[in-house]
C-alpha cells in the first residue's frame, strides 16, 4: 500500500478516537479550570502529555508546590503501560519507521492509538502519522473548549459520544475473539481481573492507569503461558 493511502487510512481510523478524546478531554478542561489553572495552561498540558489518567493525576498534584518527586513517581507508574505498548508496536513497525521517526511518533502512543495501530498487519510511519492527527486535535480542542466554555453540549449528546471510544475497542476485540479461542479466554481473564480491581475495596482505590497496567500485563502473561504462539523458526520478512 502506498504512503498516501496509508496516511488516509490512518486519518480515517483516527476519527472515532478523536471524537472520543473530544468528550474525555472536555471533562479534563473543566476539571483543570476548576482547580485554578488558566485555559492556556490546561491546553498546554494536553498538547504536551496526550494522556488521560496521567494528566488527571498530574493537575491534582500541580496545585500545590513541592510535589516534584510525587509527580515523577505518579507519572511513571500510571504511564508504565505505554512502555509495553511501545515494545509491542516496535515489533510491527515496518523498516522505514526507524530513527527519528520512532522518537517523534513515540510521543503519540496512547492506549487507543496503540490499539488501532496494532490491529494492522504492518505499522508504517504514514499510517501512524495519519492516525495521530485527529485524536491530537480532538484532545487539544476538547481541553480548550472544556476550560473556556464549561458544559455547553446537551447531556444526552455528551453521554452518547462517551461510548464511541469503547465501541471502537469492542470492534477491535470481538471479531478476533470469536475466531481465536486463546484470545477469547485471555480477554475474559482480563475482564475478570479488571472487574476485581474495579469493585474490590482496597484495590479500587488504585488509579485507573495503574490497574489497567497490572490487569493487562497479568492476563497477557496468563495468555502467553496457556496459549504460547506456535514456534516460528525463521523470519519470513526481513
Amino acid at each position: 500500500m502506498s504512503a498516501v493511502n496509508d496516511f488516509k487510512k490512518g486519518l480515517k481510523l483516527g476519527v472515532p478516537i478523536g471524537l472520543g478524546y473530544l468528550s474525555v478531554s472536555f471533562t479534563f478542561g473543566i476539571m483543570a479550570s476548576d482547580l485554578g489553572l488558566y485555559w492556556w495552561q490546561a491546553l498546554l498540558i494536553s498538547m504536551t502529555n496526550l494522556t488521560s489518567a496521567g494528566q488527571l493525576a498530574g493537575v491534582k498534584l500541580m496545585i500545590s508546590p513541592g510535589h516534584y518527586i510525587d509527580m515523577l513517581i505518579s507519572q511513571l507508574t500510571i504511564n508504565m503501560r505505554y512502555s509495553f505498548m511501545a515494545i509491542s508496536l516496535s515489533q510491527k513497525a515496518d523498516s522505514k519507521l526507524k530513527g527519528i521517526y520512532r522518537w517523534l511518533l513515540g510521543f503519540v502512543i496512547t492506549d487507543e492509538i496503540f490499539a488501532v495501530a496494532s490491529a494492522e498487519e504492518r505499522v508504517t510511519r504514514s499510517l501512524m502519522t495519519g492516525l495521530a492527527i485527529v485524536p491530537y486535535i480532538g484532545w487539544a480542542m476538547g481541553t480548550l473548549l472544556g476550560a473556556v466554555l464549561g458544559n455547553i453540549l446537551p447531556g444526552i449528546i455528551m453521554s452518547a459520544l462517551c461510548i464511541g471510544i469503547y465501541g471502537m475497542f469492542v470492534a477491535i476485540i470481538s471479531p478476533r475473539a470469536v475466531k481465536e479461542k486463546p484470545i477469547l479466554i485471555t480477554v475474559i481473564t482480563a475482564v475478570a481481573l479488571s472487574c476485581l480491581f474495579y469493585y474490590l475495596p482496597g484495590l479500587s482505590s488504585l488509579s485507573s492507569g495503574i490497574s489497567v497496567s497490572i490487569c493487562a500485563v497479568v492476563s497477557a502473561i496468563i495468555g502467553a503461558l496457556l496459549f504460547p504462539l506456535p514456534d516460528v523458526k525463521e523470519e519470513n520478512n526481513g
Binding site: F84, D111, V191, G223
Partner: peptide, 27 residues
C-alpha cells in the same frame, strides 16, 4: 517465544481492561 506470545495478547488485554467495567459507567 514467551515474550512474543505476551506481546501478541497485550493489545487485547489492554483494551479489554479499559472497556469493562469502565464503559458501563461512561454514559
Amino acid at each position: 517465544r514467551f515474550v512474543q506470545s505476551f506481546l501478541y495478547y497485550i493489545p487485547f488485554t489492554v483494551l479489554a481492561c479499559m472497556t469493562l467495567p469502565s464503559a458501563l459507567y461512561a454514559t
